[in-house]
Computed example of a mutant assay.
Amino acid sequence: MENSKNSDAVVRHRPALRLLHWLVAALVLVTWPLGLMIGFVKDDVKLDFYLVHESIGFLVLWIMLLRIGVRLTGSAPPSEGSAIERMTAGSVHGLLYLFLVLMPVTGFLATNAHGFPLQWFGLFTVWSPIGKSPDIAWTLSAIHETSAWILLTLFALHLGAALFHHILRRDGTLYRIL
């Protein structure tokens, strides 16, 4: 790339933040389709799909909390673009962080409320803060499912913006996180 804004000139995010970004992205790209497929699999494997989906989701929660901590302990590289682009990018990033915490929390609580304690990868049982609560189980499940679609939309916006910057603008935005 001959552009003066190539990858060599870009100030990148800290290595810990880049690692956590791609780890969460990979886990979400596994767990989101697993959650979608649960409704279509045979009953004899349905619990296996739930176990993996819920376990990865719980892992995403803890990685996101770590990621938020890392993000709060240092500054991000300066953003490029107009004020509206920076505001939009900041809003999408903030909402991604919010839903990447909200989704696993509501999924975990929904599992508990339906009367199933989380068996993290079959290794141990995670303490249930609410126990079986049928009155709120379906509400938590609905929030979790709605959040999944919102997260998918935010992911598409985020990916679209990254591709826009990389392919059309040919600037260093994508290189900040690579």
Rank of each mutant, 00 (worst) to 15 (best):
E85Q: 10
T88S: 11
V92S: 09
D171I: 06
V105R: 00
L34N: 03
L109Y: 11
A137V: 05
K5G: 12
P134A: 07
S82M: 00
V92D: 12
H158Y: 06
L59Q: 03
A76E: 10
S91Y: 00
L65M: 14
L151K: 09
W120L: 14
D171Y: 13
L47W: 08
L100A: 12
I56Y: 00
E80S: 10
A83M: 05
L47A: 14
L163T: 09
L23W: 12
P104K: 08
P15K: 11
I177T: 09
W62H: 15
K5V: 02
F58Y: 15
W120P: 04
L159Q: 04
H165C: 06
V70T: 00
L154H: 12
H53F: 00
V30G: 08
F40M: 08
N112P: 08
P129Q: 06
A83L: 07
N6G: 14
L168T: 10
D171F: 12
H53M: 04
R14D: 13
L140S: 10
L168S: 03
S75E: 04
L34H: 05
D43A: 14
G122N: 08
K5A: 12
L163Q: 01
D8I: 02
L20F: 13
V10R: 01
F155C: 04
L178V: 08
E80V: 05
A16S: 12
M103W: 05
G69M: 07
L168F: 14
I143W: 11
L17N: 14
A76T: 01
L23F: 14
F49M: 10
K5D: 15
V60I: 15
R67T: 11
I38W: 02
G35F: 06
T31A: 15
S82H: 03
L95G: 13
E54S: 07
L163V: 14
V105G: 02
R12K: 15
V92N: 06
S91L: 15
V105F: 04
I136T: 13
R14L: 05
T139E: 07
M37P: 01
S79R: 09
V11M: 05
P15N: 07
E54R: 10
L66T: 14
T31M: 15
T153G: 15
V101K: 02
R170H: 08
G94H: 12
G172E: 04
L140I: 14
S75V: 05
L168I: 06
L96T: 10
G69W: 11
A89F: 03
V30S: 06
L36S: 03
V52E: 03
A83Q: 03
T31H: 04
T139K: 04
A9E: 13
L17R: 03
L98G: 08
K46R: 15
P78W: 01
H158F: 09
I84K: 04
V45E: 03
G172W: 10
W32S: 03
I150V: 15
P15V: 13
L154Q: 09
